[in-house]
Design a protein around this nucleic acid. Structure first.
Length: 664
RNA sequence: GCCUGGGUAGCUCAGCUGGUAGAGCAGCGCAUUCGUAAUGCGCAGGUCAGGGGUUCGAGUCCCCUCCCAGGCUCCA
């Protein structure tokens, strides 16, 4: 008999040679049914693994993230199996599970490529393999055996050689690492039917255990993520423990698509990307411009309250400025090429605002009494993003940052950072984002400027303010830029996606390069500390995040049209205009849609525009001074509301930055 | 930048193996006057992304360029 410890601390006695599946069965039939793998003393193993006496064993069930990862990884194997059957001679590379799914990379014979139509054929083939319920059989091989087994598979051989050389796989991504065996002396494979793949495991017991999957798309992907290596053909798919979970996931994808800010931007007539202007360069239409203006106005108000001074700086500059700042050394590739002027003078579009703000600071001798000096600007910058990365408003080539640079003493740094984080989170909450976590990027070893003390002090200050908020803090060790540590605010949206919004970055480099100084109380010159911070990140990107978060149904204070008045017949038009004038006098953005179309058609059109309130006015309203209120997303309208009462509650809603009802 | 897939009316899309372009919505006009998510009829609208080639003939086949999408790489 052997004794097994379970995660809850209890023990279980089993026959010698019992497997993880036997353990699960002994605990309960449902657990056995849901089990896909197990961990033995923390190491993941197949269900069929014989358990050693005294081990601590946990059953991995299909509805856990670890369990889904097993399902997905196993499904990826079947994908490779299907592709190798359909394309004899194909080379297969790696096929890990990823968030919500899996992928597998291939090199097809003769440089062939997958088309979208191939996905259906591959899926069919995979379902045949699953129906055949082939068992996954684990095998261990020496390096030599492994190389022989995969003699015609160059990528597999490369992985095995990597294992053999015991290079700690610095260049293998964590995802790819899941595909290789754990130690340098042997490799493991999994075989089902005629197909064998190099794999660390674990896998489900047999292919019949799989089936709730969908292949989603094909894409190119570099071998080992290196753009200098061959580009392979990648197939992405998703797999779940049940058809229900799969359907829910597909529904989430549809939901995300429905919320796509590019779609909403077109539907609500907010912005566009005229191709005549160029890739990644947006124009804002009147309604989009209204929203943007409101965002910016509110931000300005908050910055005034927050003790910021304002600056305006040009969009172009002589190269000298970016030579001093160092941008031309590091980022010339992502800057627009220079304009050549007379006598070789070169002017650049600015990719960042900081050097300009620095010149404002440096324009006169500064006293410690002036610090902290906080210079704010909606600064429009241009970055020549590579063509493949441009995406809607979230990754553009021209954008406006709500950018500020704070110059302060080292002593002020901690307090300043604390106040700043409060400021950021308050502002984001005002826009309806409420679920945050923070990411702290620390000193990159070996290539940092500034003293270690400065780094420690700054990092500790960031950590202290982060922890003081009780917010989840994710460490990004060594992930800071060479010139200073960084804290970034990640916001979760209404459907659980997270977006990096604000960044707060310490900088020990630029004050030095520009020779910044202030005169201290000791009458000596000191170098100020500089903090870069953008709260929206870029106005365009933040706009996009809000559109996706609210699915276009922004809070009333941000909607370009807040109220529409619909007269039932055209002899109600005068009353409608009067009601609208009353609202407009109270600074409500209101329109009248006169009665030359059926009422329902007009209601529908404004509903689709997500207008917060549609007021319908007819005979009864004209007689009584009332309106019929149809609030956004509500099923039923409320009749006979006194106009003054409506305006009163609307004003409260606008002042409190609320919405007519919880967004969908 | 690289890979794959695309680009047909303002928008969403159809157009088989090459024979000279179509729908719905939107727009405009006329009629309709209506109480909470699509009134009817009519009209107009396209150098089929741009350029070159093959062909008697190209939206359709080939090449180049531009743009878009999904990825990869990148994101100070």
């Amino acid at each position: 008999m052997i004794t097994i410890r379970l995660p809850d601390g209890s023990t279980k006695e089993l026959e010698d040679g019992s497997t993880a599946l036997d353990l699960a069965t002994s605990i309960g039939r449902r657990l056995a049914k849901a089990a896909v793998a197990a961990t033995v003393d923390g190491a993941p193993v197949d269900l069929g693994t014989a358990l050693p006496d005294g081990a601590e064993v946990a059953v991995i069930t299909e509805d856990s993230e670890a369990g889904r990862a097993v399902l997905r990884h196993s499904t990826a194997h079947v994908l490779a199996q299907a592709v190798l059957e359909l394309w004899p001679g194909a080379h297969y590379a790696i096929g890990p599970s990823i968030a919500d799914g899996f992928y597998y990379d291939f090199e097809l014979p003769g440089g062939a490529t997958f088309s979208d139509d191939d996905l259906g054929r591959i899926e069919e083939k995979m379902r045949v393999v699953m129906a055949a319920d082939q068992g996954f059989v684990r095998e261990e091989h020496s390096i030599e055996e492994g190389l022989a087994l995969f003699s015609d598979q160059p990528f597999k051989r490369e992985i095995i050689e990597g294992v053999a050389n015991a290079s700690p796989d610095a260049e293998l991504s964590a995802e790819a690492a899941a595909d290789i065996a754990p130690d340098a002396s042997a490799v493991s494979t999994y075989r089902n039917d005629g197909f064998v793949d190099l794999c660390r495991g674990p896998h489900v017991a047999s292919t019949g255990r799989l089936g709730h999957f969908r292949l989603l798309r094909v894409a190119g992907a570099y071998w080992r993520g290196d753009e200098h290596r061959p580009q392979l053909q990648r197939i992405y798919g998703t797999a779940w423990e049940s058809d229900k979970a799969l359907a829910e996931h597909l529904h989430r994808l549809e939901e995300a698509e429905r919320r796509d800010h590019r779609r909403i931007g077109a539907e609500l007539d907010l912005f566009s990307f005229p191709t005549e202007i160029g890739s990644g360069l947006a124009v804002f239409h009147p309604k989009g411009a209204t929203i943007r203006m409101l965002m910016e106005q509110y931000s300005r108000e908050r910055h005034i309250e927050g003790g910021y001074d304002f600056a305006y700086t040009p969009h172009i500059t002589k190269s000298e400025l970016f030579e001093i700042s160092g941008h031309l050394d590091w980022f010339a590739e992502s800057m627009y090429p220079p304009m050549e002027l007379e006598e070789g003078q070169r002017y650049y579009l600015k990719p960042m605002n900081c050097p300009f703000h620095i010149l404002v600071f440096r324009s006169s001798q500064r006293s410690y009494r002036e610090l902290p000096m906080r210079l704010f600007e909606f600064g429009t910058v241009y970055r020549y993003e590579k063509s493949g990365v441009v995406h809607g408003l979230t990754r553009v080539r021209g954008m406006t940052q709500d950018d500020a640079h704070i110059f302060c003493t080292r002593q002020q740094m901690g307090e300043e950072l604390g106040a700043l984080l409060t400021f950021v989170l308050d502002l984001l909450r005002d826009f309806g984002l409420a679920d945050f976590y923070l990411e702290l990027s620390t000193r990159p070893p070996g290539k940092a400027v500034g003293t270690e003390e400065e780094w420690d002090e700054a990092t500790e200050a960031l950590r202290a303010v982060a922890e003081g908020r009780g917010l989840e803090l994710v460490m990004d060790e060594g992930g800071g830029a060479f010139y200073g540590p960084k804290i970034s605010v990640q916001a979760r949206d209404a459907i659980g996606r997270h977006w990096q919004v604000s960044t707060i970055q310490l900088d020990f480099q630029l004050p030095q390069r520009f020779g910044l100084e202030y005169v201290g109380a000791d009458n000596a010159r000191h170098q100020p500390v500089m903090i870069h911070r953008a709260l929206f990140g870029s106005v365009e990107r933040f706009f996009a995040i809000l559109l996706e978060h609210y699915a276009g149904a922004l809070p009333t204070w941000l909607m370009p049209v807040q109220v529409v008045v619909l007269p039932v017949r055209d002899d109600h038009n005068d009353y409608a205009h009067g009601a609208a004038a009353r609202l407009a006098a109270a600074s409500v953005r209101v329109e009248v849609d006169v009665a030359d179309e059926p009422l329902n058609a007009r209601i529908r059109r404004w509903k689709l525009q997500k207008v917060p309130y549609i007021l319908v006015v007819g005979d009864d309203d004209v007689a009584a001074g009332t309106v019929g209120v149809n609030a956004r997303s509500s099923e039923r309208a409320v009749r006979d509301v006194a106009l003054d009462d409506f305006l009163a509650s609307l004003s409260v809603e606008i002042d409190t930055k609320g919405s007519p009802e919880p967004h969908e």
